[in-house]
Simulated assay, not measured.
Amino acid sequence: MRIAIFTDTFLPDVNGVAKTLGRFTAYLEKTNNDFIVISPKQQREEKTNHIYPQASFPFPLYSDCRFSVPNKNEIRQLLKSFQPDIIHVATPFSIGLCGVQLAKKMHIPLVGSYHTDFDHYLQYYHLTLLKKPLWRYMEWFHQPMQRLYVPSSYTLKQLSKRNFHYLDIWKRGVDTQIFHPNYKTTFIREKYKIKEKYILSYVGRLAPEKNVDILTYLFHSLPSYIRDDIHWLIVGDGPSKDGLIEHSSSQITFTGFLQQSDIAPILAASDLFVFPSASETFGNVVLEALACGTPVIGANAGGVKTIIQEGFTGVLCHEDDKKAFSKAILSVLMNQEWYTQLQENAIRYAQKQKWDDQFEHLLNGYENVIQESLKQSKHA
Rank of each mutant, 00 (worst) to 15 (best):
I3K: 07
I5D: 00
L28A: 02
K30E: 14
K30H: 13
K30T: 03
T31E: 07
V37M: 06
I38H: 05
Q54Y: 08
V69Y: 14
N73Q: 11
I75Y: 06
L79Y: 07
P84V: 13
I87Q: 10
A90K: 02
S94L: 12
I95Y: 11
A103N: 10
M106E: 09
M106K: 03
I108F: 12
P109M: 02
Y114F: 15
Y125T: 15
P133G: 12
H142D: 02
P151V: 07
K157Q: 14
H165K: 14
Y166N: 15
I169F: 08
I169Y: 08
T176H: 06
K184L: 04
K191Y: 10
I194T: 00
G204N: 03
P208M: 06
N211E: 12
D213H: 09
F219K: 03
Y225N: 15
R227Q: 14
H231W: 05
G243H: 05
I245P: 01
Q251T: 11
T255N: 08
A264I: 00
P265L: 09
I266F: 08
I266E: 03
S270G: 08
D271T: 10
P276I: 13
A278R: 09
N284H: 13
L290D: 01
A291V: 01
G293H: 08
P295K: 06
P295I: 09
A301T: 04
G302A: 13
K305M: 09
I308Q: 04
I308H: 03
G311L: 10
T313C: 11
D321N: 14
E337H: 12
E337D: 01
Y339M: 13
Q343L: 01
R348W: 01
R348T: 12
Q353H: 07
Q353L: 04
F359C: 00
L363N: 04
N368L: 09
Q371H: 11
S373E: 15
Q376T: 12
